[in-house]
């Protein structure tokens, strides 16, 4: 009985973590789908989004939830600027060159966060919350908000991808870049929108992650591996798979704490990823987008 309660409690944490990972993984997956490279600065984009949201709150004293749109807007713009100034110039070369470039961009972003906010640890306002007791389970209100916020963001993204011209064009480019060009889809504009969305989603993950724990300059780097794991388990290049991948990785990471040191959580995500890469190199979930 106790074990069951413990398992359910950890599953709640897992779903919360999975919601955050999903937002990051969808961005990684979309960028991979269209630009064919693993974006290693994505973790640091998550960090930048969280701090941008925090900065907005500090400047305006707005209520917490304004951090989400503010961070998303900020990280979206930063992502586009990075693409236009750096990635765009090396896009025509091998994708791995973009990969190593993005590794460097990640370090640059992290260093800017350290310079602007210093080494201090920040939290979003709100303080310690008294959990709701449901049956034997303790549910922290913020966890519910995190899940709902992620759900709303993913739903909006889904509507965008399936209902709008630009969203469909993104899926088309991911499917078949050459045909998209022949068809007359304006590739550069769609790539720009991909970065806007990827950055915004990363910031969503960052703000929610910051709400769940604290803000540190390495917060995003530390979840980059689980984010990649979620994207790969879901089948990289397939944003819808990333949702399932995110949940699976989030649950596995939290439930692993039953028998492993919590600091090994990223290693658990990594091991699942490697296992999936070897067994099913295209991810465990069928279908394309």
């Amino acid at each position: 009985m106790y074990i069951l309660v413990e398992l359910l409690q950890l599953s709640i944490y897992g779903i919360v973590l999975g919601s955050i990972l999903t937002l990051g993984a969808i961005g990684v997956s979309m960028i991979f789908g269209i630009l064919r490279f693993a974006h290693f600065a994505h973790g640091d984009l998550i960090t930048v989004g969280a701090y941008t949201g925090l900065g907005f709150l500090m400047m305006t004293n707005a209520p917490f939830w304004f951090a989400l749109p503010a961070g998303m807007a900020g990280a979206a713009i930063i992502a586009v600027l990075i693409d236009q100034t750096v990635y765009k110039r090396i896009r025509r070369r091998q994708p791995v060159i973009l990969l190593i470039s993005s590794f460097g961009i990640g370090l640059i972003l992290r260093s800017f966060v350290q310079i602007i906010w210093g080494p201090h640890v920040f939290s979003f306002p709100g303080g310690i919350q008294r959990p709701w007791l449901v049956w034997e389970l303790a549910i922290i209100p913020n966890h519910v908000w995190i899940f709902l916020a992620a759900l709303i963001i993913v739903t909006l993204l889904h509507l965008f991808l399936t209902r709008t011209r630009v969203g469909k064009a993104m899926r088309a480019m991911s499917d078949n870049m050459d045909l998209a060009l022949i068809t007359g889809i304006p590739a550069e504009r769609i790539i720009m929108i991909t970065w806007l969305l990827g950055g915004a989603l990363a910031a969503g993950a960052g703000v929610l992650l910051g709400l769940d724990s604290r803000l540190t300059p390495t917060m995003g780097w530390n979840i980059l591996l689980p984010v990649f794991a979620a994207a790969i388990v879901g089948g990289i290049g397939r944003p819808y798979g990333a949702i399932a991948g995110g949940m699976l990785i989030g649950l596995a990471m939290e439930i692993s704490t039953l028998f492993l040191e919590p600091s090994y959580k990223p290693a658990v995500a990594f091991l699942i990823m490697v296992a999936v890469l070897i067994a099913r190199p295209h991810g465990i979930f069928k279908g394309a987008w």
Binding site: K168, A172, D175, N176, L179, I185, G287
Partner: peptide
């Protein structure tokens, strides 16, 4: 070869044709 967008529906494929 490779002359359709496989993960899009038929109608979405046609809509993409009119994108320009």
């Amino acid at each position: 070869e490779y002359n359709i967008f496989p993960s899009l529906t038929v109608q979405e494929n046609l809509e993409m044709g009119a994108y320009a």
